[in-house]
Simulated scan of single mutants.
Amino acid sequence: MKKIYGSASEALDGLLFDGMTIAAGGFGLCGIPELLIAAIRDAGTKDLTFASNNAGVDGFGLGLLLESRQVKKMMSSYVGENAEFMRQYLSGELELEFNPQGTLAERMRAGGAGIAGFYTRTGVGTQIADGKEHKDFNGETFVLEEGIFADLSIVKAWKADTTGNAIFRKTARNFNPPAAKCGKVCVLEVEEIVEPGTLDPDAIHLPGIYVNRLIQGEHEKRIEQRTTRAA
C-alpha cells in the first residue's frame, strides 16, 4: 500500500470536498500541519468545519484559511491569538463551538475509538453545557459530550517510518495523536521519513495503522509569542 506522496497537494488529492469536517493537530503553533493547511487553501475547498485546539494566528496556520474565507465553523478551545478569527466571530461570519481543552481532546480520542459519546463534569453549570443531556452519577452531575468523527485528519509529526509509525516532539503530542485517530482518512506530514526498524518501538506515539498518506517537507516553525530578555 502506497503511503508516501511527493507533496501536500498530492497527498490530499481526491480527499477534499466542500462542507467537510477536518480534525487538525497542533497546539498553538507547535506541531501544526502547516504544509497541508496551505495545500487546502490552494485547493479552494470551502464551507469547512475544523476541529482544532486553536485557529493559528493571523497569516499562518489555520489563520490562512480564515483569511481566505474557507472556514465555516471552528470547534476549538482557544482562539485568543487570531484577530481575524475574533472579527469574523463577532460579526457573525464564523460559527464557533467552544470546548474545554480536555473535553476537545477526549472528543477526538473518543471518535478514534469508535465511542459515540461520554459524560464529563467539565462545563456543568456553564454555557458549555446548555442544551446537552445531563445525568447524575453517585450524586454528581455530568454532561454528555459527543465524540468527533471527522472526514479527514491532518497532523504533523517529527519523524515517521515509511509505514507511518510516528513520533511527536514535546507539546506537539498534545492534540496530534487524538486528531489523527478520529478521521476517516489521516494525512501525516513529517520532518523526516526513515526506514522501518529505525525507530524504537517503545517510542512510537502513533501506530502506522492510523496513517493513510504521508509526506515529508520543510517547516517554518514560527514562534507564537517570542519573549526575550535584555542583552
Rank of each mutant, 00 (worst) to 15 (best):
L29M: 09
C30L: 11
C30A: 14
C30R: 05
G31E: 08
P33L: 00
E34S: 00
L35Y: 06
L36C: 12
I37N: 01
I37T: 02
A39H: 14
A39N: 11
R41M: 13
D42A: 14
T45G: 01
D47Q: 00
A51Y: 01
A51Q: 01
N53E: 04
D58C: 07
L62M: 01
L62V: 03
L66R: 04
S68Y: 11
S68H: 11
R69T: 09
V71M: 09
K72G: 10
M74V: 13
V79A: 06
E81M: 06
N82V: 11
A83W: 02
E84W: 06
L90S: 09
L94F: 02
L94S: 00
L94P: 10
E95S: 07
L96Q: 08
E97H: 09
E97W: 10
N99D: 13
A105P: 09
E106Q: 14
R107L: 12
R109P: 07
A110D: 12
G112A: 03
A113T: 07
I115T: 02
G117K: 04
G117H: 06
G117D: 05
F118C: 13
T120C: 14
V124G: 03
A129Q: 02
A129P: 08
D130Q: 01
E133Q: 02
G139E: 12
T141I: 12
V143D: 01
L144R: 01
E145V: 12
E146T: 06
I148A: 01
A150I: 08
A150K: 03
L152H: 05
S153A: 15
A157D: 12
A157G: 13
